[in-house]
Design a protein around this nucleic acid. Structure first.
Lengths: 223, 223, 223, 223
DNA sequence: TATGAATGAGAATTCATTCAT
DNA sequence: GATGAATGAATTCTCATTCAT
């Protein structure tokens, strides 16, 4: 599961204004924008994923995103109808990434290694890492909540059969254990990335993989 | 760790309003619980923990909390100076609960059972369950972030020695594994309570305890 | 005019909380208050004059005043019905002080000396100084505005005949000049006390009296 | 000093609402003056000066100003960051006006005439009149207080040498006398405009100039 | 297509005042 | 008579969104 997929991310404009949040009285004019709808849309989407994943829905302002992307705020409504629409698009794209990312590694060690890679969130491939963080963010909208629920359910079912791909329909007990494993991945990601508790926040990918390997063995059926 | 502590909770008023944000104008009957500062303060605190834990800091409005508690909004500022002050008070009280809650059960099964109880969050004892959820909510304030970080660190160290109380100082590797266990507890709590993914959301406490037991064995040093 | 009248002022409790305005979450209980209505009322009145004169009506909070006086806020409404009522009472008392204060010194030098004393506002006799400052503060209430207007009119008439007490009815031109003199006293008081512009703010009473003496000679009819 | 400078002022909308605080819902006709940032900003600034000068900082609400200007309240924060920012901008613009306004008329009669013109505040040129009133209004912010202090100091120094431009550095005594003259101008302005004491409030410019002329002669060094 | 101006709804907070003890 | 608890009406400010160019 969670195999690499990479793809550049293009988070342009150094993501200025973050944290300090000084009040701009009137922003200056930017470099004249290129007029490529698809590209602009994608740029907004990527920037939004980044912000939503790191700061959550309510905390992130559309201006943060627009500024991050270096485009005008109004374009968010133009392309995504609303902030919620943008969030939904982010979630959809995250779902795509995560589904593409899933594989059928059958060895616990492989699975653990991939998970550790996702948790660690190396800078050169942040998409799936961000997708994971996004899964625990809610916009309060029931429709996106359902999307998250459904995706998580689907992932956990796939995970439940990862070590035994021949099994078609895992039983509830197996799915439950897979969900706890999934919970561990999500919880650990948060502990490491959002809250930054040491030593987890500074540990190397291998150490995490090492522990996860035992965890996978304990929760998934033996191959 | 996480031993029961119970204590009544007095979250009166069924804490309605959720999602569609209709504003209830009068909070029903008004049990004559007025004019008791300490009690009102505590009521606000409990209601706030409830809301913050479930909806996060930014999403929860002070009016939600005040209405939930059936008191005037201004009392929040009176008793806690600000929304952030209230959040900090919630976190402090959660820390207290969690610290009181920790014990030294040395058997993995015991530890797992307690954890499962916390994750399940039975209605008659929601405090520690809420405290867990609160740990993954940020107000954006660095001071409370540090509180969470420090508490999580302390809990994971304690957890790392839970099966071997004779050990004084756990090494980083042990703490790391304990943190992954902690991550699993937090992640599973979210998956069950916030996102409500079945079958986890409907599973019984024992089934969760069962899986957790294997997990504890896999991550903590053998007794 | 403006002859001394003195009287202790009894501004008890060191007038804590001023400027820094730190937020008290819950103030501590004070020493058990003596129960003397008249005294409490007077205490509030004096403290209010002090605050209103220095900071204006809108800026001063009733809590400032109550805290300054060391009594409960509710007493302000009890004794004066409202914040406006308190302001009106302050103005009334100021009017009394100023009327009592007025005399018929006929020598320009005498008049100037008294004025300088008022402007300087020596700490041992702040009442008239405060009364002067109060005259330029408005609560927005038309009734008190009328009081100020009427008092100022009356003072300027009296002033117009100060150097020639035999004159009964000063003509408008004389009153006008007296009003400009009065304006000078008020304006100089503000420049010195509220805005604190050096060298005026640090000048001695005599230097001010010196200049004022020329001013009186220039504006009032010769004796 | 205080020579005329005029310039149209464009305080549109008769600036109604005063006293009884009825909220006018729609600001009349809405001349299609929309979508011009600089103009809107200037309009807000002018309206704010008007209100702050007449009613002080605390009493004036941002909504008063926005309604007075016929624009949305949020624009105040957009263009000036905060109410305090707007006040500071008003003061800065007042400082500019007053500095531009200052000249070196050396004859006492000229100086007095200019002062009288400012005090009178003819409707066709209210800017400097308002600037004068603004000088006695405080927002409670130390930075703007310092601006006022510094401006008043600078004006009084200039005034002290107005009748003898050859003098470079006036001594303290001369500045003190100039400050009393300045205090007279400010105090008289208030008496006339804010408090409206007759006959000063209804006197003609020449009568005031007449009295002021004597005053200038009495306080400034002979040419 | 893209921009910046403008808006309106709602958020937290302050504060005078009233109520119950 | 005095207190502290509680309230409701503002007030400032933020922010998603819409409008005009």
């Amino acid at each position: 599961m969670f195999t690499s997929r990479c793809g550049r991310v293009t988070l342009p404009r150094p993501l200025l204004r973050q944290g300090s949040k000084q009040r701009e009285v009137r922003p200056v004019a930017a470099t004249p924008r290129r007029r490529d709808a698809a590209q602009t849309r994608q740029l907004l989407l990527d920037t939004a994923r980044h912000h939503f994943a790191r700061h959550g829905f309510a905390t992130t302002t559309v201006r943060d995103i627009a500024d991050g992307a270096g485009v005008n705020v109004a374009l968010i409504n133009r392309y995504f109808a609303s902030k919620e629409g943008l969030f939904e698009a982010c979630l959809t794209s995250a779902v795509t990434d995560l589904k593409q990312d899933a594989d059928r590694s059958s060895s616990p060690a492989d699975i653990a290694a991939t998970m550790a890679h996702r948790i660690a969130g190396s800078a050169d491939d942040p998409r799936v890492h961000e997708a994971l963080l996004l899964l625990v963010r809610s916009s309060g909208d029931e429709r996106t909540d359902e999307m998250r629920r459904s995706l998580l359910h689907s992932i956990s079912r796939r995970l439940a059969t990862a070590t035994n791909p021949s099994v078609r329909e895992p039983d509830d007990a197996a799915v439950l254990r897979a969900q706890i494993l999934l919970g561990a991945v999500l919880g650990t990601t948060m502990l490491r990335a959002s809250i930054a508790v040491p030593p987890l926040s500074t540990a190397g990918e291998e150490q995490i993989a090492d522990a996860l390997s035992d965890l996978v063995k304990a929760l998934l059926p033996a191959p």
